[in-house]
Amino acid sequence: MDEFDYEELEAATENFSPSRIIGKGSHGCVYKGVLKDGKLVAIKKQSLGLQKLQDNSKLDNEARILSSLPQNPYLINLLGTSKNCVKSKVLVMEHMPNGTLYDLLHVSPTPPPWPTRA
């Protein structure tokens, strides 16, 4: 797993611009980013509340689980992590170009058939 330069991730997401948000959850937001080498990535940044508490436990746990899984074409792979100047952690993952699983199952006008879902 790589350690990314935080400034590169800020540049990749236009300083974590709201226009780059591709997903939201209870622990933070996921941003679409383009690294200097042109690679498209998803960058998960914790919520302001967790940042203020300096609580990296949720992202640490997610990183531990994702990094323990073998490479698999059916899973999003963790590429690495980074920390800003106040030690708030971010996760850098492969970008999933077709949207989220939630959107596919619950927002799409024609969800996939059950065999595909399984």
Rank of each mutant, 00 (worst) to 15 (best):
residue 2 D to L: 15
residue 2 D to E: 15
residue 3 E to S: 14
residue 3 E to L: 14
residue 4 F to W: 12
residue 5 D to M: 04
residue 7 E to Q: 12
residue 13 T to P: 09
residue 15 N to E: 15
residue 17 S to E: 02
residue 18 P to M: 10
residue 19 S to C: 07
residue 20 R to T: 12
residue 23 G to L: 09
residue 27 H to Q: 08
residue 27 H to R: 06
residue 33 G to F: 07
residue 33 G to Y: 04
residue 34 V to Q: 14
residue 35 L to C: 13
residue 35 L to Q: 01
residue 37 D to M: 03
residue 38 G to C: 12
residue 38 G to K: 06
residue 40 L to W: 07
residue 40 L to N: 09
residue 42 A to C: 02
residue 43 I to Q: 09
residue 44 K to N: 08
residue 45 K to Y: 02
residue 45 K to N: 03
residue 45 K to A: 13
residue 46 Q to Y: 03
residue 46 Q to G: 00
residue 48 L to N: 09
residue 48 L to G: 12
residue 49 G to C: 10
residue 50 L to A: 04
residue 51 Q to W: 04
residue 51 Q to M: 15
residue 52 K to N: 13
residue 54 Q to F: 08
residue 55 D to I: 05
residue 56 N to C: 13
residue 57 S to K: 11
residue 59 L to P: 05
residue 63 A to S: 13
residue 65 I to E: 00
residue 66 L to P: 00
residue 71 Q to Y: 06
residue 72 N to V: 06
residue 72 N to S: 14
residue 74 Y to F: 06
residue 75 L to H: 07
residue 83 K to D: 01
residue 83 K to Q: 08
residue 83 K to C: 11
residue 86 V to H: 10
residue 91 L to A: 13
residue 93 M to L: 07
residue 96 M to T: 07
residue 96 M to A: 15
residue 98 N to E: 05
residue 99 G to C: 11
residue 104 L to W: 01
residue 104 L to I: 10
residue 108 S to C: 10
residue 111 P to D: 13
residue 113 P to E: 01
residue 117 R to Y: 03
